[in-house]
């Protein structure tokens, strides 16, 4: 990573750290901020699978549910400390991801999409029936997280747990994608036969991609459970609709980029909120939809790429300008 990129990430982290207390947002908006970072973690995981490994999933809402209920069960029933439950939720969801990845080895493209869709539907149905685990329609109340005796009761204090985890996961992801595993995933995405000829065990890496992606989503699921005061299997975040939302996040933000995953998650979480203040209720959804379509048409590679292109243009413009000055001076 070059120095410029490094500095811009640090500035971003500073902004993300300082803005919420300065703005002193009302609870509902701080909740939304927490939520957008949780979704950013899901989007990064989904992007690893789709953007880097070239596999599709329309079932990430279900992974979120697996992570959320695992964490709720571990903390409520087994009294496991929050932080350990968080990691375990990631690992257990990761195992579920690997199990889904195995049949996916035989499937490609549309068929894989349908299979993951089926998985998404099945999990929500099972969780709805499995009341001893999920509480069913009457729901359960996940505990507010506690670390070293400090209870993270407010959305603002919890925000910092989520922020730190997001930063850690971004760094780990960055390291993974620019080394052997990342290169193997991208190689397999671009040409499966060349990847095989280069010694890449394609079955292994496809399964790994599913497991890894589910791991991230499981972590996010745990964070989500403890953000909510009350949770049922009918929660929108666990639904197929949300799975499609996750897909929209990475398409809008930028397939195959970490920054795009975060941008997409923030846009898709806040856009409905911003447009909901409009006088006509259904207008909000229409405008959200229209904006998504516009982004996909005008920035088919996502906003992260569009941003990079814009920066390039500015730099070129600036460089030209500098050249002119140099020429003038030389004259």
């Amino acid at each position: 990573m070059n120095a410029k990129k490094y500095i811009s990430w640090i500035v971003l982290i500073l902004i993300a750290t300082l803005i919420p207390p300065i703005l002193n947002l009302p609870g509902s908006l701080q909740y939304l901020l927490d939520l957008s970072l949780i979704y950013a973690i899901v989007a990064i995981g989904l992007n690893l699978l789709m953007g880097y490994a070239g596999q599709i999933s329309l079932g990430h809402g279900a992974f979120l549910a697996v992570g959320a209920y695992t964490s709720a069960y571990l903390t409520l029933t087994l009294h496991v400390p929050f932080f350990i439950a968080l990691i375990l939720s990631g690992l257990i969801t990761g195992i579920v991801g690997i199990l889904l990845g195995l049949p996916a080895l035989k499937l490609e493209g549309n068929y894989l999409a349908i299979a993951t869709l089926g998985f998404g539907v099945a999990v929500t149905q099972i969780f709805a029936i499995w009341t001893s685990f999920t509480g069913g329609f009457s729901g359960i109340k996940p505990l507010k997280p506690e670390l070293f005796g400090f209870k993270f009761n407010s959305y603002l204090s919890y925000y910092y747990i989520i922020l730190i985890l997001t930063i850690v996961l971004v760094i780990l992801t960055w390291n993974i994608i620019r080394t052997k595993v990342g290169r193997s995933l991208m190689a397999m995405r671009d040409s499966e036969i060349a990847a095989k000829a280069m010694g890449i065990n394609v079955s292994y890496y496809k399964t790994l991609a599913f497991g890894l992606s589910a791991f991230y989503t499981g972590i996010a699921g745990s964070l989500y459970a403890h953000l909510l005061g009350f949770m049922t299997p009918y929660d929108y975040a666990f639904s197929i609709g949300m799975s499609l939302n996750f897909l929209a996040m990475i398409v809008i933000g930028g397939i195959g980029t970490i920054s795009g995953s975060i941008i997409g998650a923030i846009i898709m979480t806040w856009l409905p909120q911003i447009t909901s203040n409009l006088p006509i209720k259904s207008l909000s959804q229409i405008i959200t939809g229209a904006i998504i379509i516009a982004v996909v048409i005008f920035y088919p590679n996502g906003i992260a790429y569009a941003g990079a292109r814009l920066k390039d243009k500015f730099e070129k413009l600036f460089a030209k300008h500098q050249e002119k000055i140099v020429v003038k001076i030389e004259k």
């Binding site: 290169r183 190689a187 671009d190 040409s191 000829a197």
Partner: peptide, 11 residues
């Protein structure tokens, strides 16, 4: 190598 170049295009 491959007759029809099989590079990793986006790398």
């Amino acid at each position: 190598t491959f007759q029809n170049v099989e590079l990793f295009k986006h790398m």
